[in-house]
């Protein structure tokens, strides 16, 4: 029989791999409800549907998996205009919601600081101290805390499992191990009267400029 379904199936999956497919089409600028279809720029501006299909797919938001796009080097967004300005990173996961009805939340500092500066969150959205913020899904859905970005620019709040991503018992074990390690360290530092919450992993520069314009 000349018809070979297996080949077709293999081709189909190969065309989908390695990333999630895009969920649908991107609206045309002239029909998107914000651009003036009679304006002179409408034929000059780039259509999302011309640029975004080339980036790793996702099912929500811009239908782009922005973290994959960045880490695979498909896009190389600049981290600064002034090359002397430091591109601060922190590789530290924070586990939230250890005992709730939903799986625990893993907040990855690294994925965030690849895009954002510390001052975008600290201290006006979150104090840089584990457990010091009353983070709640209610406030997030109102566009506060994580919801300042998620639901506006970063992937939307419908993607529950991208935040609630770790089984509770696993997160509890990880946090217990972190706390034991910190207790050991602060016992060792005890004589030097170090503050027990001091974080040895945080960069030497603390966020102080509050995200204010340097031009003003």
């Amino acid at each position: 029989m000349p018809f070979r379904p297996t080949v077709l199936i293999a081709l189909l999956f190969a065309s989908m791999a390695p990333s999630t497919p895009h969920a649908g089409e991107w609206a045309k600028l002239a029909e998107d409800g914000v651009h003036d279809p009679k304006g002179p720029a409408i034929g000059l501006l780039q259509q999302p549907g011309d640029a975004l299909p080339n980036l790793p797919g996702d099912t929500a938001g811009n239908q782009v998996h922005w973290i994959k796009a960045l880490r695979t080097g498909v896009i190389q967004p600049r981290p600064n205009l002034d090359p002397a300005r430091e591109d601060r990173r922190l590789d530290k996961d924070i586990y939230l919601d250890l005992y709730g009805s939903m799986p625990s939340v893993r907040f990855p500092h690294l994925a965030h600081t690849e895009w954002l500066d510390c001052t975008n969150c600290h201290d006006h959205l979150f104090l840089p101290k584990r457990g010091a913020n009353n983070i709640s899904m209610f406030l997030i859905l109102q566009g506060q805390q994580c919801g300042v970005c998620h639901g506006a620019v970063a992937f939307p709040l419908t993607e529950c499992s991208r935040c609630h991503s770790v089984p509770n018992n696993q997160a509890q074990r990880i946090v217990a191990a972190i706390e034991a390690e910190e207790a050991k360290r602060s016992a060792a530092d005890g004589d030097k009267a170090a503050a027990p919450t001091t974080n040895s992993e945080s960069p030497s520069k603390t966020p102080t400029d509050g995200g204010k314009a340097k031009t003003k």
Partner: peptide
């Protein structure tokens, strides 16, 4: 990156 506009 976000930090260019929202911090710098």
């Amino acid at each position: 990156r976000c930090k260019v506009c929202h911090a710098e």
